[in-house]
């Protein structure tokens, strides 16, 4: 079915809106120093930190988010509405407020953090684990909402048949429910990873900014940007590096899963 022509024009405007800023970024790069900026030890450290913390955060989101998504999808409409609203909290909170919230709970003098510190001498801020926590906090809604939506539309017919055939509840979940929504899970995971990778505000406030430990790429870019002269060029280089890495990983993830299931 062909669409009204005006729709294509509007879509083109939207695409331009997304693509042109990136084009602007590329033109700002200082090509002479780009290579050395890209592969300076500091930038590679920040990139590696970003990648592995985002990966861990995504795993945390899967472990926590999948059960929650299944529960919401199989709840009554009213309860589901309430739960969905709660899940949206990190989306609605500005990331810095999220960081502040995490500090007030898990900081050294926080609600839970204080007794934990007094008992074990361990506090979460300034550790890489804190980065994972901050990223997981902001990225969880993406996974839950995507998976829950897929579950709701797929309905319970297959699960009911499976249980009459003799499958217990865990077996139904593992052999019927989850495989049927695999594309939704893949989409949610990709979104979740991308969000975790790009997270700045909550990480800056909750985990701090120490190279190699908590200075993820976004923080490195911001710090470089706040510097004078050469460091601003390296901010552009870092931004490009992060953009390309994210695009490769997220694009790769989606393409692979979408082929596999059909």
């Amino acid at each position: 079915m062909t669409l009204p022509r005006g729709l294509y024009v509007a879509a083109l405007v939207a695409l331009a809106f997304l693509v042109l800023p990136v084009v602007g970024l590329v033109t700002r790069a200082h090509w002479s120093t780009l290579w050395s900026d890209l592969f300076a030890p500091a930038s590679l450290t920040a990139l590696w930190l970003s990648l592995w913390t985002a990966a861990c955060a995504t795993i945390v989101c899967l472990v926590l988010g999948l059960p929650l998504a299944v529960v919401i999808a199989r709840s009554t409409t009213r309860l589901a509405g309430v739960l969905r609203t709660i899940v949206l909290i990190p989306l609605v909170l500005p990331p810095m407020v999220g960081g502040l919230a995490l500090l007030s709970l898990l900081g050294r003098v926080g609600l839970l953090g204080k007794p934990i510190f007094q008992f074990s001498g361990f506090s979460l801020p300034y550790t890489s684990a804190a980065v994972v926590v901050a990223q997981a906090f902001v990225a969880l809604p993406f996974l839950v909402i995507t998976v829950e939506g897929t579950l709701r539309t797929s309905g319970i017919g297959h699960e009911q048949i499976a249980s009459t055939l003799g499958a217990g509840r865990w077996r139904v979940l593992g052999t019927v429910t989850i495989p049927l929504i695999a594309p939704g899970i893949a989409a949610g995971t990709a979104l979740c990873f991308a969000r975790a990778l790009g997270e700045f505000g909550a990480t800056a406030l909750f985990a701090g900014n120490a190279p190699g430990v908590t200075q993820t790429m976004p923080l490195a870019i911001y710090t470089a940007f706040n510097g004078v002269g050469i460091t601003q060029d390296s901010a552009v280089a870092l931004s490009l590096l992060l953009l390309v890495s994210a695009a490769v990983i997220v694009g790769g993830l989606r393409a692979w899963r979408e082929d596999a299931v059909r």
Binding site: Y126, N209, A210, N226
Partner: peptide, 16 residues
């Protein structure tokens, strides 16, 4: 433990 991009953040962290 952390390198802040402005001095007010340093102050806040020690204060709280």
């Amino acid at each position: 433990a952390s390198e802040e991009t402005n001095v007010t953040s340093v102050v806040t962290r020690v204060e709280n």
